[in-house]
Design a protein around this nucleic acid. Structure first.
Lengths: 265, 265
DNA sequence: CAGTGGTCTAGACCACATG
DNA sequence: ATGTGGTCTAGACCACTGG
């Protein structure tokens, strides 16, 4: 972990334009933003404390905080109370072909892709889940919460719901490789397809913020995906949350010739 | 324009929880948020000045501003320098079937839908436009900038690019009803279809903020749409910007049986 | 001109995480 | 115990908009 203070000193060196042209806090934010974009500040780097940074940039702590707040809102920095302020590892924006296997859809291809299973539980279908899966409220379902990490940056939090009676051996089939596709195949389902994708925007809940390492109420992208088995039965209802600028979702009309099964992401 | 001060006084009446439980500025923001959501504060209502509101809620102007800033970031309020703070008319989140005619895709159906043509010009294709339209950079194109307003709230800013040689009588055909679909039909193109939709998130540029009546750098949803004529030629490249929480885009795989032409939105 | 929102400062207290 | 980020105040000056 290299010391970021020397770099910040160089960033603060050029005098700021007279105030009222562009607010100082925006100018500070701009310089920090550029430094991150140019790779001068790498992911997970720790910045000096707010008071120190205020000194470096020659402003009050309040003003410094405004700049930092803006960068947190944009998902570039992330403050942790009692710990410090860190550069959030931000992959360039990946283009993701939604409806393909997660890894294959990434453009450019990422060096490291990881998936963490945060929770797996059986429960009863809520109203929305029931409607999406064509079940009755209260029917048995399996819920899976996972986090996708690309190049050290958490980029995708998903909560998937499956009909329990269709996939009785879910846990066992999933355990081996943490793959939803394996589960489907273990139950004789291959070649399932995306039936619908919905995209909306919102603000991260506390839980989402923690998982994605964002500040609370940071803007996010939300996806709702419905996957169906070849016979048309909906077998997966998936809610996804993405940091706003992490991805560009590409949605191409379904081409019957392309029946390649995909990983349920 | 009713006076909003009495309502705010009732909102401020209940004492705030001891600080450090939940920050006062968040509590204030919560109450204002609820008031808007519950319809107590209607669109375009003007709030009292910051100093007055600070009095009403019993806090400093700085604290009051934090609450207001949050609500602006979420697109609920909109401050205009030298004028005042206004409630942004926020339609409920509309579900929009992207790839249909704008009006038909809205769910629930809106009472009032309007479209304003902000700019129409001929120019030379930029690199991105050229690639999307299968042209060479510098080829003649027509650009159209429009704003969609639903129930008094601006919800969709679009910049569309068309190949000029394919649509020589663009201006004349568009003039009558401000309809892109008319233009296509006037050139013998009917039944065009959505080839690709891309969705990403970002922060409003100054121009976008003005058009959509948002504060600068408010989070937004961005769409890129490619429409093709029946023969497969790409005839429209469309960039769209939406307030983050204004819509939910629904993307269903292309169904060949549904060849209904749609309005190019 | 008066009123409005936008920016900035100086100083204080608190809650949290770490050693 | 220390240092960190989070919150709040009091007071000031500026720039924009409108009548």
């Amino acid at each position: 972990m290299t010391d970021t203070e020397p770099l910040l000193l160089t960033l603060a060196a050029p005098a700021f334009d007279a105030r009222s042209l562009r607010p100082i806090w925006k100018q500070i934010a701009d310089r920090l933003h550029s430094a991150c974009a140019d790779g001068l500040l790498l992911g997970d780097a720790r910045l000096p404390g707010e008071i120190r940074m205020a000194e470096i940039f020659g402003v009050t702590r309040v003003t410094m905080r405004r700049a930092l707040a803006r960068l947190q809102q944009e998902g570039i920095l992330q403050a942790r109370k009692g710990v410090g302020i860190f550069v959030r590892p931000m992959p360039l924006r990946y283009r993701l072909d939604h409806g393909n296997r997660f890894a294959d859809g990434l453009d450019p291809p990422a060096a490291k892709i990881g998936a963490t299973t945060l929770a797996m539980e059986r429960g009863q279908a809520e109203a929305e889940e029931a409607e999406a899966l064509h079940l009755s409220p209260g029917d048995a379902v399996i819920r899976l919460t996972r986090l996708r990490v690309v190049d050290d940056a958490p980029v995708y939090l998903s909560r998937k719901t499956f009909p329990a009676d269709t996939l009785p051996r879910f846990e066992a089939a999933y355990a081996a490789r943490s793959s939803v596709r394996d589960v489907f195949e273990a139950h004789g389902i291959a070649g399932y397809r995306r039936v619908q994708t919905r995209v909306s925007g919102g603000f991260a809940t506390d839980a989402e913020a923690v998982a994605l390492r964002l500040s609370p109420r940071t803007p996010v992208l939300r996806t709702v995906a419905l996957n169906a088995a070849p016979d048309g039965r909906i077998i997966e209802y998936s809610l996804g949350t993405w940091p706003l600028t992490a991805v560009e979702l590409v949605l191409t009309p379904y081409d019957p010739s392309q029946t390649e099964p995909f990983d349920a992401d």
